[in-house]
């Protein structure tokens, strides 16, 4: 369908954007890549009075690495992060997930901040942010807040961002030496949202697992960490038996949603398979990176 009428503002600076947000509050929607918002407008699932287009705000784009953190501006496009050597070197899990988002013509406009602010539970980047305990920096007129990933995702398409706040950057911890990663995904067709997705980061030290992080996409209304599996893995040496047990624990206590793409039982089985595959791939990757 054609888009419904709306007012349109195109601020050039972050402070102008924040002023506009304070003025319009929940009457406004921030327009980043538009890959989720414009379909919502076309389908009449969102009816904001005003769009605040942040595409012209230069200071919101770019990747910088400082003090063990990769700082990614909210307007950084998915293709730009995908092509960034800094991202590949410092946040390999993010680099592994990016090519799985939609298609080239989607990633050429879609943004890191847009995907994380949209908070689709089946999307790749929320699982990555949750696995790595990324930090979200939001700015309102009274200043900035830093929100940990565990508190950012509140529910289906819902975050703890207040209506007067703009997501300005996302900070990912840089991977330590000996860390291997994998993003596993099962979808019907290439480029579709995941039926089940899994972000895995595994750090090895002297042959034993020193840090294990697993976060599922598509298993709940928010991305979820598989903490029981993580606890099991810590301190152990990688083996097929260990990974089988981790797969069991990761999926034991969860009750994934059922929809036309798969039943709850199916999602659990696929989830267990992604844990086994993901751990094996991340362990191999860790060995390569040592």
């Amino acid at each position: 369908m054609k888009l419904p009428p709306f007012g349109y503002e195109a601020p050039k600076t972050t402070s102008e954007a924040v002023e506009l947000l304070a003025e319009y509050l929940d009457q406004a929607s921030v327009l980043a890549g538009g890959k989720s918002l414009v379909p919502l407008l076309a389908l009449r699932l969102a009816r904001p009075a005003v769009l605040i287009d942040i595409n012209g705000i230069r200071e919101l784009s770019g990747v910088s690495v400082t003090d063990g953190q990769a700082v990614i501006g909210a307007m950084t496009r998915e293709y730009a992060a995908e092509e960034s050597h800094a991202v590949a070197d410092t946040v390999p899990l993010l680099a592994a997930a990016l090519p799985l988002i939609g298609h080239e013509a989607i990633r050429s406009r879609g943004t890191i901040g847009g995907s994380l602010a949209h908070a689709d539970p089946a999307a790749e980047l929320p699982a990555v942010a949750r696995a790595l305990d990324a930090e979200f920096v939001v700015r309102g007129q009274s200043g900035e807040r830093v929100i940990p990933a565990a508190e950012w995702f509140e529910g289906y398409l819902t975050t703890s961002r207040r209506p007067d706040e703009l997501l300005v950057q996302v900070r990912f911890p840089t991977a330590q030496p000996g860390t291997g990663v994998s993003f596993q995904e099962v979808a019907r067709r290439q480029g579709d949202f995941a039926i089940v997705g899994l972000a895995v980061s595994l750090s090895l030290s002297d042959g034993a697992i020193s840090d294990a992080r697993l976060a599922f996409a598509g298993m709940s209304d928010v991305p979820v960490r598989a903490t029981e599996a993580e606890d099991l893995l810590a301190g152990e040496r990688p083996s097929a038996e260990l990974f089988d047990e981790a797969a069991r624990r990761a999926t034991e206590g969860i009750d994934p949603p059922a929809d036309l793409h798969g039943s709850s039982e199916y999602r659990k089985k696929v989830g267990a398979a992604t844990v086994r595959r993901g751990l094996r791939a991340a362990a191999d990757n860790a060995q390569e990176r040592q």
Partner: peptide, 18 residues
């Protein structure tokens, strides 16, 4: 799909003013 500044994009998801 059209090419915008060298990259393929969905022209139904971009506003003309953008």
């Amino acid at each position: 799909t059209v090419v915008l500044d060298g990259r393929p994009v969905r022209s139904c998801l971009i506003l003309a003013v953008q």
